[in-house]
């Protein structure tokens, strides 16, 4: 399954500046593994040491936050859009 992954500004150092990249996988977990193979280190910014999604990062498949779906086991249909949305505090 090929999905497109939206990369937030603060993680674009891993993708050579690309804001949208493609990755393979039937579940979010597989997509992140595949993403990390292409862009080493990026998974560690999304998942914590225990392998769970960090609490200040939201991952959406389509329009839904995977925390309210199956988390990392959420299926990622072909053509789905995965969005990584970290908390940002700036207002200054």
């Amino acid at each position: 399954m090929s999905v497109s992954v939206r990369i937030p500004t603060i993680l674009r150092t891993y993708t050579g500046g690309d804001s949208e990249v493609t990755a393979e996988g039937a579940t979010l977990s597989e997509v992140l593994e595949n993403l990390d193979a292409s862009y080493p280190g990026i998974k560690g910014r999304i998942l914590d040491d225990q392998g769970s999604i960090r609490r200040f990062v939201n991952v959406y498949v389509g329009n839904d936050d995977v925390r309210f779906l199956e988390a990392l086991d959420t299926t990622t249909p072909d053509g789905a859009q995965v969005s990584v949305i970290p908390a940002v505090a700036g207002g200054c």
């Binding site: 603060i10 960090r54 609490r55 200040f56 939201n58 908390a87 940002v88 505090a89 700036g90 200054c92």
Partner: peptide, 12 residues
Amino acid sequence: YPEPPPPGMVPS
């Protein structure tokens, strides 16, 4: 966002 990022992880 249930918890804030650890300090230093997200730049201002």
